[in-house]
Simulated scan of single mutants.
Amino acid sequence: MVILLVATTSDPASIGPASALLAMPGWHTGPSLQDAVSFVNKEVRLIKLDNFLVKEDYLDKRWEEATGELVDEIIFLSKHVASSNRPALTVHPIGTPHIREGEVLFAGGKPGWAALPNPRIGPWLRLLRTIAESHKLTPEFEVINIINTR
């Protein structure tokens, strides 16, 4: 089982963290997926896509079919806009549970659907807050877990 990190070359907020990860030791070139380059470090795979991430449905299944590797979890490195319009750093599950069938989806997704949250989301959010505070990014940046409700 592998962890698939997904970045898009069209988003600096995505490719920046991906580049920082790839600068760490242990990475080497991995298999390609539909012309997208990937990198391997132990059980982690990082794939760089040219498309916007919200268009990448069933990426786990496509990876499994192309490589034979089962995907345990997918982590998308991406930019978001907080409802407050303040700069924000966030960790959250994907989905739009607050959108009803027939409503306009501004950022993609499926109305009324959300992925189950990763059990590590709480510790990741606390670590993100600690890192943001140590780099004096707060209070300019909100550190939040996005939960869409009505």
Results as ranks from 00 to 15, higher is better:
D50T: 12
F52E: 15
F52H: 15
F52N: 01
V54S: 15
V54D: 15
K55I: 00
D57K: 12
D60M: 08
D60G: 13
K61D: 03
R62A: 03
W63I: 03
E64R: 11
E65T: 06
G68H: 05
V71L: 15
D72C: 07
I75Q: 04
I75G: 09
F76V: 10
F76E: 01
S78T: 11
S78D: 10
H80T: 09
H80P: 04
V81I: 11
S83Y: 05
S84R: 12
S84T: 15
N85I: 07
N85T: 09
P87C: 15
P87I: 15
P87T: 15
P87L: 08
P87M: 14
L89F: 14
V91W: 06
H92K: 07
I94N: 12
G95L: 13
H98T: 08
I99C: 13
I99Q: 02
E101I: 05
G102T: 04
G102K: 04
E103D: 11
V104Y: 04
V104L: 08
L105C: 09
F106G: 12
F106C: 03
A107T: 02
G108A: 10
G108D: 12
G109P: 12
P111L: 05
W113D: 01
W113L: 13
A114K: 06
A115Y: 00
L116Y: 06
L116T: 09
L116W: 08
P117Y: 09
P117A: 10
N118W: 11
N118H: 14
P119N: 02
P119G: 00
I121G: 08
